[in-house]
Amino acid sequence: MAGQVLAILVLAPLLQGVLAQLRARLRGRPGPSLLQPYREFSKALRKRARAGRSDSAVGFAAAGFALGTSVAILFLLPHIFNAGWRSAPFDAVALVLFFALGRAATVLAALDTGSSFSAMAVGREIAFAAIIEAPFLLALLAARTVPASALLAGSALFIVLLFESARIPVDNQETHYELTMIHEGMLLEYAGPVFAAWQYSAQLRQAVMVVLVGYVFSGGGISPVLVSILVVAALPLVEAFQAKMRVFDVPQLATAATLLAVAALGIDTLGGLR
């Protein structure tokens, strides 16, 4: 268990690098080095920390809080894999609510800066969070007793992954353009080690999500690791061949995820009746 947690802690930035590299290759560009996220961290750690409002340390505390939440999620994960999704207490419900806790810290930190850019991003973040939470949990709860259920739940969770990791078509990590940004927008006022903490906790959550999607897709049949690798390959494909959606079209994606998740859970439940 400690080994798995440690592996994700070390490799989460590498995953970000791999995704950036693959996306660039698909677009016909050489792309950044796989180790670029680590370099960014080492540079950020050498800079002076800056956290929004200058007269309080609230922004710092929030960054630490969010990082702690991501680590807590990491520690929840092995419990869930060992004991099952619906076996209390270390279960999908706790996982989803801890994701929400990390988001709450980010949102409050962004609003604490008082910047309108950040607040604009917050407005989108809380709206999307409200509609993505239900498919997230429902997809995790689907027991995936039949391949169809696993497929549906996995697809729903893949959409949730797009939301949680701030990727096209929901968000765009590569711009700081106020019409598109959500995740980056909230962290605009943060720099140096505090910014690194925010980014690192986001990368940890992204890694956890990839593992989750892989696990759910595999449905206990195929190797989850293999499926996770496929998910990693699929993400840049979506990013390279999809256009960024209009902000107010994004909810349709969440609706699709909800329908998929409800269908998955429905198939399981009806299957359980027989």
Binding site: A51, G64, G68, T69, F98, V194
Partner: peptide, 20 residues
Amino acid sequence: FAALPAVGAIIFWWYGVRTA
């Protein structure tokens, strides 16, 4: 599990008070 975020917040708070 919620103790982890609390610990993170305290460490970063202390760091922020020193460097802000």
